[in-house]
Design a protein around this nucleic acid. Structure first.
Length: 268
DNA sequence: GCCCAGGTGATTA
DNA sequence: TAATCACCTGGG
């Protein structure tokens, strides 16, 4: 079905580092994998998108891609004097903060530490193939992101073979705690930002960077700004080491503009 | 073959 | 509170 969507660029989103399972398989053609779902999306001209799914299935993607929010307002946060951010925003039109699965994000970002995006994707795909449910459709065979129970069926050796390295125990421990009911990821929606971050930090292998990513990309806390090496450099060089007051409310969104720009371009 | 990757926990002072 | 260090391993 054809959808007209403003401020939506799948390629930019796929490379934004917030999700690891959106693949451009052919020019302007994307496989979007999330949870136990896969959809083929074709990006066409004039804000047109062809989602190969039913209207009912599209409801899920409307939420997943945060399409009900109007992103015009975020590009207007930029201070007039801030030429750098303006450049980042212009460069990253179509970037959105997704609403992704909470469990999937925790595992994915535990895996992400000290890994390149490419390596993260390889690890995740291997794990999905070993333990996720098979999804077969006209586009091929895909694998769902595994549940905690499915991950725990894997041996330590199998997880290591996915390239998890020293993160293996973090993943196993979290899955066990999760199965035991120690974390109610849905109830955590009700927590304040600080409470949410602190709860996430109590997971072994989750530090401030990973907790912030989960808060932003799974709990949609727009004011939380994950600070990684790239953003650290931006803040140091451009903002005297701290986030400007005016940007605090939507710091997570602004982080995405900064991140997307600086990963591709030189800082200047 | 070498170096680093969207970090974290443990240890030390 | 801050600084330092080891850590698995895949990619560029």
């Amino acid at each position: 079905m054809i959808k007209h969507i403003k401020n939506f660029d799948l390629r930019t989103i796929a490379n934004s580092g917030q999700c690891f399972r959106i693949y451009e398989v052919d020019e302007n053609v994307f496989n979007v994998l999330s949870k136990d779902k896969m959809v083929r999306v074709r990006m066409e001209l004039n804000n047109k998108y062809d989602f190969d799914c039913t209207e009912k299935e599209f409801k899920y993607y409307e939420y997943y891609f945060d399409l009900l929010d109007n992103y015009d307002k975020y590009s207007k946060i930029c201070k007039k004097s801030d030429k750098f951010l303006q450049k980042c925003i212009n460069f990253s039109k179509g970037l959105r903060i997704l609403n992704q699965d909470k469990f999937e994000m925790i595992i994915s970002f535990i895996i992400s530490q000290r890994k390149s995006v490419k390596a993260i994707q390889t690890s995740i795909e291997r794990m999905c193939k070993l333990s996720g449910k098979r999804i077969k459709n006209k586009y091929g065979e895909f694998y769902a992101f595994p549940s905690a129970k499915e991950i725990l069926k894997l041996s330590k050796t199998e997880l290591l073979s996915c390239g998890m390295g020293y993160r293996t125990d973090y993943i196993i421990d979290f899955c066990k705690d999760y199965m035991a009911g120690k974390y109610d990821l849905e109830k955590m929606t009700k927590l304040s930002d600080d409470e949410l971050i602190n709860t996430l930090l109590s997971i072994k292998g989750v530090g401030i960077k990973v907790a912030s990513c989960v808060a932003l990309f799974a709990y949609h806390r727009m004011s939380i700004c994950p600070i990684d090496v790239w953003i650290g450099r931006v803040l140091d060089k451009k903002y005297n080491g701290k986030i400007p007051k005016e940007y605090e409310k939507y710091a997570g969104m602004i982080q995405q503009y900064w991140f997307n720009y600086t990963r591709i371009n030189k800082l200047n």
